[in-house]
């Protein structure tokens, strides 16, 4: 019946074209997935290196930082591969596939930068420093917050999500610093996290994933404040060097 009237109801090209579109889409996803598998593994490896910071006194952090930087370099290679493939397609069409892995990479870069790594040309590394989104883009060698053209980049949301992960990590580091006998670092962390928290508070967040995760910052702030309180109560807070 259908064959008797081939052009009547459905132009056969319609479904042929649709199938082609579906197949092309699957092909792109496959390409991206291969890169992400590598990136995910490298990301885990960087994170495990960085978590050694919890058991390493800050004076001896250098090897940890160097090893993390090397691992991050591998991640950056994967990201540039990803950027090349992804930039051939609408950014937001596939963004959901890699966003989490890219956030993990940004988190590692930010944390490594805070610990005193990630020196850049013209900008020496400095412990306690927050890399801006532009600096993260420079490190990763990809554009940030693109608006005028459609290509791979790091979005503001991704940067903020990563920043929240860094805060979680710093709350843990505050506790472990005390265990290591370092009573100065919790104060530094406390100030840093409070400053970031103040920043988050001026954002008008809607009921999205950023909102839900940013709600967790206040618990980190509290956790760190408790540590500072415990230290000051026992007169363990080092007197600040006159500045």
């Amino acid at each position: 019946m259908a064959d008797a009237t081939p052009t009547g109801m459905v132009d056969p090209r319609i479904f042929e074209d649709l199938q082609t579109k579906i197949d092309e889409d699957a092909e792109v996803r496959e390409q991206i997935k291969v890169i992400l598998t590598a990136l995910e593994r490298q990301g885990r490896s960087t994170q495990s290196i960085l978590s050694r910071a919890h058991s390493t006194p800050s004076a001896q952090l250098k090897p940890v930082i160097e090893s993390a930087e090397n691992s991050i370099r591998l991640e950056i290679e994967s990201v540039s591969k990803l950027s090349e493939v992804a930039s051939k397609h609408p950014y937001y069409k596939y963004n959901g596939m890699w966003s989490r892995d890219v956030q993990n990479a940004i988190t590692s870069i930010l944390l490594c930068g805070w610990l005193g790594g990630m020196a850049m040309t013209g900008k020496p590394a400095e412990a306690g420093k927050l890399l801006t989104i532009e600096e993260v883009g420079e490190v990763m060698n990809v554009p940030v917050n693109l608006k005028d053209r459609d290509a791979f980049h790091i979005s503001i949301e991704e940067y903020l999500q990563s920043l929240i992960s860094v805060i979680d990590e710093l709350a843990r580091l505050a506790i472990n610093s005390v265990t290591l006998g370092d009573y100065q670092r919790p104060l530094q962390i406390s100030q840093f996290v409070k400053d970031i928290h103040a920043g988050f508070q001026i954002l008008n967040l809607k009921n999205d994933s950023l909102r839900r995760r940013s709600d967790s910052i206040k618990y980190s702030v509290k956790k760190i404040e408790d540590i500072v309180y415990d230290l000051s109560l026992r007169n363990l807070v080092p007197k600040p060097v006159a500045s």
């Binding site: 400053d195 970031i196 920043g199 001026i202 008008n204």
Partner: peptide, 15 residues
Amino acid sequence: SPFMPMFEAFRDELD
């Protein structure tokens, strides 16, 4: 907070 200008820019974008 020293990060305020940065967050103000983010706020505008997110809005």
